[in-house]
Amino acid sequence: MVHHNDSLREACKEFEEDLVLYYYGECGAAERGRVEKHLERCASCQQFLADLQRLLPLTIKPDEPPQLFWQSYSKEMQRKLAPREQKGPWWRNLAALLRPWPVSALATALVLILALTLTFGKRVWRTQDLPPEEEGVMEILPMAENLEFFKAMDLLDSLELLEAGAGLENGSA
């Protein structure tokens, strides 16, 4: 029996989507009642539903592979999963190193060591580097450098005075 497209009867537009849902059993109770009541008196919608029941199963092409296929499938999956699992222990070792509490404990310890080193280390190093008699020399040296500086400043002051004096003479002349 052949149906021609030109005689294809359209369902009522306001019921068409509901008929599709009704076919798939997706209607709520209220919608189901409404659709069934409408179907009792509408030949177009009855034909529409009959077409769905006739045609939609044709779109399914089932495939049932043999048991051997599934055995091979499982073995292939085990083989493909194996390289990803072997990476696991290496990851786990790395993850163990990066676990939160040892990291924070280690970081805290490092900060403390650094703080203690900076606080006490400079004095310890300096006293260790210089013998006591030379320590006095080290304290005097900066003073000597400052003295030279102040002498230079005095000279500069003198130069300024000389320049100022020269300027006055030129102005009066």
Binding site: H3, H4, N5, V20, F48, L52, L55, L58, T59
Partner: peptide, 20 residues
């Protein structure tokens, strides 16, 4: 999703109606 299914079904019905 309901709209997608509705449109798919009506399109398939129009194209396959002359079969069988």
């Amino acid at each position: 999703v309901k709209t997608h299914i509705h449109r798919a079904v009506t399109t398939l019905r129009q194209r396959l109606a002359e079969l069988v």
